[in-house]
Amino acid sequence: MSAREEVLARLRAARDAGAPREAPAPVPRTYRRTGAHAPGSPAVLDLLTERVEDYRARVLRVATDGEVAAAVARCLAEAGSQRLVVPADLPAPWRAGFGGRSVLEDSALAPASVEQLDGVDTVVTASAVAVAETGTVVLAAGAPGQGRRALSLVPDHHVCVVRGEGVVASVPEGLARLDPGAPLTFVSGPSATSDIELDRVEGVHGPRRLDVVLVG
């Protein structure tokens, strides 16, 4: 017998032998499927801001897409960034504040090497969805402006643009908007560890600095 057949046979026998005396009840979905605030509402954006800042990440609020470039420029200036990497399809208007910095364009067809990524200071990306209650921003690999996974991982500074209409209140609302077919990265603050005396320290292997530019 192959291992596959053997393991499946064991599990079939076990499933039947250990079946509970009563048939399992249907899954009670009485938990909240939607949060208190509507997607994109001012209240949900406020909540996202508060929760992201709780992780000691920075949030810059701007009213319109046109103001993104200036906010990005501020993030870059404050971090002292000189070398940037962006997904090739990052919206052009957002790049207006890059100034004279060197910009590496990355795409699946023309990927930057890991060494190249290790040599840049900052990555600027868009995002797919943000979940306000948990202060989470989700990147879908390959989706517009979000790039390959390595982009938002290797550089030490991540500037992530979140559009207001992509902000939902709760985890269930967030997952419902995501397609698991693409690799997804859920980011809640900068990288962190609690492995030493369960004391939280921000900044380990992932980007040590996370700036969220929130539009709306």
Partner: peptide
């Protein structure tokens, strides 16, 4: 949607852990 709420709050006592990665098979180019 249930477990991504239960797990981080129960384990590290955070609303969400810093990173969750999901992947499906192989993604060409990534």
């Amino acid at each position: 949607e249930v477990f991504l709420q239960l797990l981080p709050r129960s384990s590290t006592g955070e609303r969400m852990n810093p990173y969750t990665s999901t992947w499906t098979g192989v993604t060409p180019g990534d």
